[in-house]
Structure formats: C-alpha cells, structure tokens
Design a binder for these strands. Structure first.
Length: 304
DNA sequence: ATCCAGGATGTAT
DNA sequence: ATACATCATGGA
C-alpha cells in the first residue's frame, strides 16, 4: 500500500471533499462508515471515501483502489498506486476555482450556492462507469443511483484485495455486455436494463467510443454520446460534464428546470437545445456547468 | 394509496 | 422539430 498527502494550500481556490463526492455528480465513490448522503452538514468532518478507479487513458492503466479523506487542510490518501495524479484528475484539483467563480455572473441564487458549498469541484469520472451511471439515473433518486452502481460492481466487477479487504471494480464493458436484459432487470435496473446491456455491448464491440466526443465541439460531442442506447441530451451533458472534461454543459434535469422557471424564466425556450443555449449563456458560457452543479446541489440539499 | 425521482424511446403529427 | 404514452422500482 502507498500513502501520502496533498496540501490543499497549493490549490487555486479551496476544496471540499464531501460536497464534491456527495453532490450527485459521481456515483462511483463510497463511504466505509456507511454514511453516504446521510450527513446534511456542508462541512462534514473528515470521513474516508473510497473507490476502485477504472482504467483512464494516460491516468490509470489498470484498476486502482483509492482511499482519501480531508483533514486539517490536506488530503490524506491510501492506494494501490501513487494517487497524486489520480486525485488531481478525478477531483479536478488543477482547476482554478477562484477564476471559475469570477467568470460566473453574480446573481442571488448563484452567490448563495457558491458560498454554502465553497470548495466543491466538478469530478472527472472514468467514462464508461459514468455513462452507465447516468443511463441508470433516469427517473431515479441520487441514493438509489449510487446503490445501483455498487450493486453492479458487487455482482459483476473484478474483485481486488487491498489492505485485507475485498473491493469490487466497476464492471468492464465486456463484463456488462455479457449480461442479459433479464439478468440486469433482476438487479432492479427496471426499464434501464436493455439500455445498459446495449450500450455496454456498443462499447465492448467497438461500435462506438465515448472518448470520440473528446475532440469535438460541445454540441457535436453531445450528439456523439447520444448514439448510445438510453442516452439523450441530458445524460450526454452529464457525461461530458462529469467525465470528459467539458465545463460548459448545463444538464437540464428536473431541478434545473425548476430553477429556470423560478429564477431564469426568460431562458425557457421550449426545447432542450435552445433552452440549454440560453441558460448556458446566463451562466457565463465556458464554466456554465460549474454554476449548474452548484445550483443543483444547493437546491437538492434544501436550499431555496 | 398516490406521487415522484439528475429521462429516454418509439410513434404519430 | 414537437407532443404523447410508456417504461420499473422503491421511498415518502
């Protein structure tokens, strides 16, 4: 086992691990204390978080177990490998949060959200687990989406021993593609089961590559991801924002649509594409996805 | 019991 | 392009 620390004073802007990991961006982390999504305080102490990182090009060549907690202005980590580049990538520690906040137009709602969850950053999940997570997210609550991903890992993922414990990696495309729709329905995926199976098959067979969105302009990238079964504009936006490094997508979910109706009614243009453009402009363009994620977490956590 | 959750798909217009 | 019904599951 390797261990280390990352001093947070070196970062551009602050960092808050709990709000970053428990804000419904990523469904791939867990808390060994069993308190995931249960603590309402924004400053929730120094809990450990853990995940099995799926392979990421140029970042992780293979599955790696990773544990991290935030204590006294630093991140303490334990891992199967050197976790500094992993954490920097996964939790976007290289973002200049001050500059991002400065690029975001001030308004009462955004000011409150940025203040209450100061230090929350976007995540960069491995793309296949992210894609499956958000296919599962359709008409589903945050805690259940998280539970579904843990169940998929436990049922179908590789076992990895680390620190005398057994961890479960998220299943690979090949592993998920090998399951039948009925098997996945037995895992309580409901009507998402055929979407997950078919999308996994598309990736496993090389029919399409989610990484193909990387070189494209934003709206072309969204269209590229929409070819996967079970992926519409909203889920595509989530994958671009929470995995592929795009910061301008504003996923139009039920919470953001309510926020638009209540706070930005002029941005309601009827359809997804035009409303997305309007609210993206409202939030300052380039980092509009950051603003969206702050508002989502703020409203969903009881703010109003 | 009825409603709702980080929506997408297929079909009809 | 847009409107509509339909799709599982479980917690409030």
């Amino acid at each position: 086992m390797e261990r280390g620390t990352i001093p947070l004073s070196d970062l551009d802007g602050s960092f808050d691990l709990q709000s970053t990991v428990e804000s419904g961006q990523s469904y791939l982390w867990d808390r060994p204390d069993g308190e995931m999504y249960t603590t309402t305080a924004a400053h929730g102490g120094s809990a450990w978080y853990e995940t099995v990182v799926s392979p990421i090009p140029d970042v992780a060549a293979q599955h790696e177990v990773l544990r991290v907690r935030q204590v006294d202005g630093e991140l303490q980590w334990e891992s199967t490998t050197d976790a500094v580049p992993l954490l920097t990538h996964l939790l976007r520690l290289d973002d200049d949060l001050n500059a991002i906040e400065a690029e975001t137009p001030a308004d009462p709602l955004l000011d409150r959200a940025f203040e209450q969850y100061a230090g929350m950053r976007l995540v960069r999940d491995p793309v296949f687990p992210c894609l499956i997570s958000f296919i599962c997210s359709a008409q589903m609550r945050v805690s259940r989406i998280h539970g579904m991903q843990r169940r998929l890992a436990r049922e179908y993922g590789n076992e990895i021993e680390f620190d005398s414990r057994t961890y479960h990696a998220f299943p690979t495309p090949t592993q998920l593609a090998a399951r039948t729709e009925d098997e996945l329905r037995e895992q309580s995926l409901g009507y998402r089961a055929p979407y997950v199976q078919r999308t996994a098959e598309m990736v496993a067979e090389g029919e399409a590559d989610p990484h193909g969105a990387l070189g494209l302009d934003y709206e072309d990238a969204r269209d590229h991801l929409s070819q996967f079964m079970g992926v519409g504009n909203k889920v595509a936006d989530c994958v671009l924002l929470f995995s592929l490094g795009f910061t301008q997508p504003v996923p139009l979910d039920t919470w953001i649509q309510t926020a638009i109706a209540d706070y930005y009614p002029d941005c309601d243009q009827g359809g997804y594409v035009s409303t997305s453009r309007a609210i993206r402009e409202q939030f300052g363009g380039q980092y509009a996805g950051y603003a969206q994620t702050y508002i989502f977490h703020y409203l969903r956590s009881g703010g109003n």
